[in-house]
Structure formats: structure tokens, C-alpha cells
């Protein structure tokens, strides 16, 4: 059967219209739930760098009670009127470091809401196949890594994808990002696996078969923490003399 051009055209329009109608309805109807999921994941990733989240942990409540977020610029000055949860780190990553919005999350003590226990910084970078991202928490001295949380888009399962496991993430705990002279050196995951780097505060045991993902991780930590250097330095200068001596 050969149809006229007008029929084909009308048919196309009709199919397009009904498909679009259905899709818009579905997308609009589910949008709220999807955004909730994304927000929940962001909150749990941040909290997971400073505490162990169990199934019954009320992430929303703990977050509301203990997390204070704000945004700074490259100079370390707080940018007023920008909510940290509205900052899309993936988009900021494409800008030059000097013009990025840099969110910071302070985790305050459970008993004293004025005492900051940890600072959590978002990270964004590139692994072997695609983007990797995560959060790193520093202790109040802004030097010692307390915990990390990494995620990835499509690193190789069983190899690079291991960055998303606790086994790899806890290797960073206790490492320091400044050397004894107070210079920023970051931490570096090494090539090869099974070595003991417990005496070296800047080296982390590597992942066998995932050297390039490891390099991406190093680059991400160095670049993103590097953006916060001015903020970190100014905070450290505010620490008392004794606290500063204890740093090194």
C-alpha cells in the first residue's frame, strides 16, 4: 500500500505528538522523586566521609543537624547568596580553577554546634574511561585526611571501579596533604599493590591493574584540593599557635 505524502506527514506529526505527550507526563510526574534521590545520594556521600552510615541512619536528620555548607571562591572568600547544594561540581569542573564556585561542608560536633570537626570538599576529575568524582574530609587541622568517598561513571569493574569500594577509600585515611614545610603536596596513589606506605604520609597503596584510574584519582585530589588552598591557608592561620604546632 502506497500512502500519500500528506498522510505520511500527518502520521509523523501524530506519532511525535503522542510520544512527546507521554514522555512529558512521565518526566514531570517523576521529577520530584528523582531529585529527591539525587539529593539523598549527595547527602549520604558527604556524611559517609566522616561516619559509617548504617541502613537505619536517618541521613536527612543527621545532615540537617551536623552539616553546614557554604561556597567560596578561589581566593578563599565566601560567596554570599549561593547555596552549596545548587552548585553543580561537574559544570564547575569545566571552568578554569580561578572562576569556579567551590562548595565546602563543615561537619560540626554532635554536642557543640560551633565546633567544626571536619571539612568536606567535593572532588571531580577524570579516570580511565570517564569522569570520576567524590568527597574528601579533612580533620579540623585541615591537613589530615579523615575519610574519602569516590564514585565513577564507567571505570572497569573489578579494576578501576574499585575506587568506589571502602577497601580502597579507607587507604587514604590519616594521610596528610601538606609536607613538613607547610607546602601543599597532596597524596598520591602509587603504582602496584600490596606495599606498605604506613610510614609515608603522602603515599597510598595502589590498585593492581588500575594504574591510570589511580593517576586520575591523584590528579583529581591535587587539582581540586589545590583550588581550596587559599581557603585552607586562611583557616589554618586562624588556628591557635598550639594547634599549628601540633600540625607538623
Amino acid at each position: 500500500m502506497k500512502q500519500s505524502n500528506a498522510y505520511i506527514l500527518a502520521y509523523t506529526v501524530a506519532v511525535t505528538f503522542f510520544c512527546a505527550l507521554l514522555l512529558s507526563a512521565v518526566t514531570l510526574g517523576l521529577k520530584e522523586r528523582q531529585l529527591e534521590n539525587i539529593e539523598f545520594e549527595r547527602k549520604s556521600s558527604i556524611l559517609s566521609t566522616v561516619m559509617e552510615l548504617k541502613d537505619d541512619t536517618d541521613v536527612k536528620e543527621v545532615y540537617a543537624k551536623r552539616v553546614r555548607g557554604y561556597v567560596v571562591n578561589y581566593e578563599g572568600k565566601v560567596i554570599e547568596g549561593v547555596a552549596p547544594e545548587k552548585v553543580d561540581v561537574a559544570k564547575e569542573y569545566k571552568k578554569s580553577p580561578e572562576s569556579r564556585y567551590l562548595p565546602i561542608y563543615e561537619i560540626v560536633s554532635e554536642s557543640d554546634p560551633n565546633e567544626v570537626e571536619y571539612y568536606v570538599f567535593p572532588l571531580y576529575g577524570y579516570g580511565l574511561w570517564d569522569n570520576i568524582w567524590g568527597y574528601v574530609s579533612l580533620k579540623a587541622d585541615l591537613n589530615t585526611i579523615y575519610g574519602t568517598n569516590f564514585a565513577h561513571k564507567s571505570e572497569t569493574p573489578g579494576l578501576g571501579a574499585r575506587i568506589a569500594t571502602e577497601e580502597i577509600q579507607k587507604r587514604f585515611s590519616g594521610k596528610k596533604i601538606f609536607n613538613q614545610q607547610g607546602e601543599f603536596v597532596s597524596v598520591e596513589m602509587q603504582k602496584g599493590e600490596g606495599m606498605d606506605y604506613s610510614n609515608d604520609p603522602h603515599k597510598v597503596d595502589g590498585m593492581s591493574g588500575a594504574t591510570i584510574t589511580g593517576r586520575g584519582l591523584n590528579q583529581m585530589l591535587k587539582e581540586y584540593l589545590g583550588c581550596y588552598i587559599n581557603f585552607i591557608k586562611s583557616k589554618q592561620n586562624n588556628l591557635s599557635f598550639i594547634e599549628r604546632v601540633a600540625l607538623y
Binding site: 502506497k2 500512502q3 498522510y7 505520511i8 502520521y11 507521554l22 512521565v26 517523576l30 528523582q34 534521590n37
Partner: peptide, 25 residues
């Protein structure tokens, strides 16, 4: 219309796939 049947099939398949994707999300 037989001349555009593949593209009609494709748009219907794509619609349902996006519905599945949105529900999973």
C-alpha cells in the same frame, strides 16, 4: 506508512525505553 515504518517503530521503542529509564531513576 510502509515508507516510514522503521522510524515509527523506533520512536515508539524509544518512548517506552525512556519511560523505563525515568521510572528506574
Amino acid at each position: 506508512p510502509s515508507r516510514i515504518r522503521i522510524i515509527v517503530q523506533l520512536s515508539i521503542v524509544a518512548t517506552w525505553v525512556i519511560v523505563v529509564d525515568q521510572f528506574l531513576k
